[in-house]
Write a protein that binds this DNA or RNA. Structure first.
Lengths: 213, 213
DNA sequence: GTCTATACTCCGATAGAC
DNA sequence: GTCTATCGGAGTATAGAC
């Protein structure tokens, strides 16, 4: 019988909180905010229901924390670009990084999808503020590329939506993708194949050719 | 005081059932199966909760009926194609009809999205049967077009997913689209613009050119 | 056919024993 | 810090009055 050291206690807390966050992300993603029960989250995390509430305070706080975690992952991916950059490189990097996020955090992507599906009640501010600003900033660069003849004069906002939707699809509609392709899960080669396909079709479709080719 | 005729009674029933279906489609789409409450559906339909259950039997039956209604709309759109058809015409018709469905039935699209998001528990059979068969049939035609040099050798299944995701996005992620474009809703011109954009980029991206051009 | 009342279950959240 | 017991409310569904 040894007394747990403060470090042990902290470690347990951190581990439990991590388990709760991961379990909750999955449950919220599948059933939405209202459809998710603290009970179901607790079971998925392997803890009693009251412990979950003890750690996170309330269902609402837990949900908000998860959205914030997902938005910080998203923001970490959104680097700036300038007119001087190579369109082909930027577009390809955009598609690939978005696909990586989809792949490494499918539950987060689905959580976001569920939130937007119900009208984005918790994310209105983010969508109409930070994210809108980022989109328009990038859109202006795309337009300048078009003017310089580096790509076709396509609507830059529709292009961003195209890339978002095409990549997110493999997380949000995973059940459909797996059903139709008759797989249990997509492996490295599948993701490679999809990503290459999207880069090829979208770049060519926008009339983008690499400067160095 | 007149006695209602049988025709009146039937008419009331039909009207109520229609109201319930439409209201339920919206509520299920926003909150998922578990998150939707019969109470909320009843309020949206302007009827007492017990009347809703009286008409539809149970929450589960109502949900299944809605999925079936959506799948029949979907199926009505899936016409067959042959190798002899013009790739440009077929692809463009595919994109446009899918976009029309998205536009005329956004709640149905969101209902489907919510169902797939939770792992498609009610639609496994449809996805792995009917729909998979349809996809592979079409995929084979795309491959033959590629062999004949009528389009680039792209993966036909990824192409179908691209078209599905890019169009559905405007129903499923409507809240995000409206937030970023700062609109209250998308009008005719917006849908026209998006559809033209998608046709242009996807056809060109796949190396498809019209036979008649 | 329609509405009221209610049965019974599960929800989120908390108080209090250990 | 953790678990048990329980509260008040909301969930689906039904029985029975009108």
């Amino acid at each position: 019988m040894t007394t747990p050291t403060p470090a042990d206690v902290t470690r347990t807390r951190v581990r439990n909180e991590q388990q709760i966050l991961d379990a909750a992300e999955d449950v919220f993603a599948r059933h939405g905010y209202r459809g998710a029960s603290v009970q179901a989250i607790a079971e998925a995390a392997g803890l009693p229901k009251s412990n979950v509430l003890y750690y996170v305070g309330s269902k609402r706080k837990l949900y908000v924390a998860l959205l914030e975690r997902m938005m910080s992952r998203w923001n970490a991916m959104l680097d700036d670009i300038s007119v001087e950059d190579d369109p082909a490189e930027v577009l390809e990097a955009f598609i690939r990084s978005k696909m990586t996020l989809t792949r490494t955090h499918p539950e987060g992507s689905r959580l976001f999808a569920a939130e937007v599906l119900q009208g984005a009640p918790f994310l209105q501010e983010y969508l109409r503020g930070e994210l809108r600003e980022w989109v328009h900033q990038r859109a202006r660069v795309f337009e300048q590329w078009s003017e310089r003849g580096l790509m076709d004069p396509v609507d830059p906002v529709w292009l961003i939506f195209l890339i978002w939707s095409a990549t997110q699809h493999y997380a949000d509609f995973e059940a459909q993708v797996l059903g139709i392709t008759d797989r249990e899960r997509l492996d490295d080669a599948d993701y490679q194949s999809v990503t290459d396909f999207l880069c090829q079709v979208i770049l060519k479709g926008c009339g983008v050719t690499s400067r160095r080719s």
